[in-house]
Computed example of a mutant assay.
Amino acid sequence: MSKGKKSRIALFASGSGSNFQAIAQSVQQGEIPASIAMLICDQPDAYVIKRAEQFQIPVFSFRAKDYPSKLEFEKEIVSKLREAGVDFIFLAGYMRLIGETLLNAYRGKIVNIHPSLLPAFPGKDAIGQAFNAQVKVTGVTVHFVDEGMDTGPIIDQESVKMAVDETRESLQEKIQGIEHELYPKVIKTLLTEAVMEGTKE
């Protein structure tokens, strides 16, 4: 990244995009030193696409089944990201494992948020897993992405206490509230450090 240049980031999402919204608002308000170059979405009818349109953020949506393999659709994604000059990728509810094509292109620059205190409850429905296990404490983890499922190096975590009368819905609300504060904060720190590194070059 050249001196004084804001990072260009891409957000990946598959669903309603509440974390996308929190990040986009933080960028718009100048809290995150970045511009959002693109939303990548693997569900062309996902609500997150409407959110991106409201922020006038370009969207690349696709259906995995329209490609012969993960290699092929990831090659197209990498091509789109490079065309847009993307420096970092932040997953915001993207429900696919990142493959080696994307990992190799953006090694160490792909970050995910997960609704549990990893390594506990990786994978799908982490909130439901924690609720069913009746743990006393769960939380949120922001981590770098590697080849595994929610196994990359942890950047930051925040815990959530499970109330005696907790419901799955109330737990989800608590966790989402923390996600919407923690993720933009971590992104700001990571990108500020990247800009500082850029000024040393």
Results as ranks from 00 to 15, higher is better:
Lys3Val: 14
Gly4Phe: 11
Ser7Gln: 13
Gly15His: 05
Gly15Asp: 07
Gly15Glu: 02
Gly15Val: 04
Ser16Leu: 03
Gly17Ile: 11
Ser18Gly: 09
Asn19Leu: 04
Ala22Lys: 07
Ala22Ser: 15
Ser26Arg: 13
Val27Ala: 09
Gln28Tyr: 13
Glu31Arg: 14
Ala34Pro: 06
Ala34Lys: 05
Ser35Thr: 12
Ser35Lys: 07
Leu39Val: 14
Pro44Phe: 11
Ala46Trp: 06
Ile49Trp: 02
Lys50Gln: 15
Arg51Lys: 12
Arg51Trp: 01
Gln54Gly: 13
Ile57Val: 15
Val59Lys: 15
Val59Trp: 13
Phe60Ala: 10
Ala64Met: 05
Lys65Arg: 13
Lys65Ser: 13
Lys65Asn: 12
Tyr67Ala: 07
Tyr67Phe: 15
Lys70Arg: 15
Leu71Thr: 14
Phe73Val: 02
Glu74Asn: 00
Lys75Gln: 13
Lys75Met: 10
Lys80Cys: 09
Arg82Lys: 14
Val86Pro: 03
Ala92Tyr: 00
Tyr94Asp: 10
Met95Glu: 03
Met95Ile: 12
Leu97Gly: 10
Leu97Met: 14
Gly99Lys: 05
Gly99Asp: 05
Leu102Asp: 02
Leu103Glu: 08
Tyr106Met: 03
Arg107His: 07
Lys109Val: 06
Val111Leu: 04
Asn112Tyr: 02
His114Pro: 04
Ser116Asn: 09
Ser116Trp: 03
Ala120Phe: 07
Ala120Cys: 07
Lys124Cys: 13
Ile127Glu: 01
Gly128Cys: 01
Phe131Val: 08
Phe131Trp: 14
Ala133Thr: 05
Gln134His: 10
Gln134Phe: 01
Gln134Thr: 04
Lys136Ile: 06
Val137Asn: 08
Val140Asn: 09
Thr141Ser: 15
Thr141Trp: 07
Thr141His: 05
Thr141Pro: 03
His143Tyr: 00
His143Leu: 02
Gly148Ile: 00
Gly148His: 00
Gly152Arg: 05
Gly152Gln: 04
Pro153Ile: 11
Pro153Asp: 14
Ile154Trp: 00
Asp156Asn: 06
Ser159Ala: 10
Val160Lys: 03
Val160Arg: 00
Lys161Thr: 08
Lys161Glu: 09
Val164His: 11
Glu166Arg: 01
Thr167Ser: 15
Thr167Pro: 09
Arg168Trp: 01
Ser170Pro: 12
Ile175Asp: 03
Ile178Asn: 01
Ile178His: 05
Glu179Leu: 07
His180Trp: 03
Glu181Met: 08
Leu182Gly: 04
Lys185Asn: 07
Thr189Ile: 11
Thr189Asn: 14
Leu190Gly: 11
Thr192Tyr: 04
Ala194His: 11
Gly198Asp: 13
Lys200Gly: 00
Lys200Ser: 03
Glu201Gln: 13
